[in-house]
Design a protein around this nucleic acid. Structure first.
Lengths: 151, 151
DNA sequence: ATGGGGCTTACCATGGTTGGAAGGTCAAGG
DNA sequence: CCTTGACCTTCCAACCATGGTAAGCCCCAT
């Protein structure tokens, strides 16, 4: 099976398969004499595992840990569970940040007439953040920007 | 005022101020004879505006649109509101995606004994996604990965 | 005048993924 | 045998926002 077939069968693009190999997430594939990568059903199985973990928002690093547990026949399910719940906590933290932003903006938008006049509480709030005690409008620095969010 | 002072006063790092200038988000700062960037209170005001918009999760592109409305004295508040609500919709979409992931994982984790035995429903689900009808476990492809999420 | 800190530009890295270019390989059809 | 087209290979660049680092210049205070 060539990389294209493996990609179609697993849902992981050929590009990403090569990337995962390069970064050591998956072992180097066997090669034909011409240098083509060759994959078997087992490989596709692993790639699908990876795809599914990505769908659940795991980072590549996290997937690496999941994979090693997956391969480890003497694993303890407690370890898997811990990994999963840690990721859930990450997700919930991110959700809270986004939710805060959405609520602040919604509150502001609700105060905005949304007509053809220029005055707008949204712009006002951006200029000069509201009082520190207003929960919907944290002062600068209170909200941690999510950064290059990886999920 | 040098760039360091402007950074401290606005909460935007000197690095990012230069980046914003380079990418055209803000106009080039005035320079001293020695080439130092010089900022005034107005500039700091604008930088704080940008900082606040970033805190609310706007992309740099979105901030550019906000800035042009901010500067446009003949703006219509409806335009600002539309921008804000579009961003809220973005946030909510992202929140939903993350929430789906978190719930799927939590459900799986709840089924996992979390003991010293190797059998684990989490790994099982990653290997072979559950039935298509289970809402907490969409088939591969049903969950759109957010990609290089920009907020 | 010398030292320390600030400023300048320029480059590298992150994370995950996509895109392209340039070139080799394979299978089918003429 | 040759062409064509689909596939594969490697390498390089880009995205977004940010942090870091390094070499070199500048300014101020001692």
């Amino acid at each position: 099976m060539n990389i294209g077939d493996a990609a179609r069968a697993s849902g992981v693009s050929a590009k990403m398969i090569r990337y995962y190999e390069e970064t050591g997430l998956i072992p180097p594939a066997a090669r034909t004499a011409a240098g083509y990568r060759v994959y078997g059903d087992q490989d596709v199985h692993m790639l699908r595992f990876i795809r599914r973990a990505r769908d659940l928002g795991f980072s590549v690093e996290g997937i690496g840990e999941l994979l090693s547990l997956w391969r480890d026949q003497s694993r303890q399910s407690a370890d898997v569970k811990r990994l999963a719940l840690a990721h859930v906590a990450d997700l919930r933290r991110k959700i809270r940040e986004l939710e805060d932003m959405a609520q602040t903006l919604e509150t502001l938008a609700a105060c905005c007439h949304g007509n053809d006049r220029p005055d707008c509480p949204i712009l006002q709030e951006l200029e000069a953040p509201a009082a520190p005690d207003a929960p919907a409008a944290p002062r600068p620095g209170a909200v941690r920007r999510p950064g290059p969010a990886r999920a």
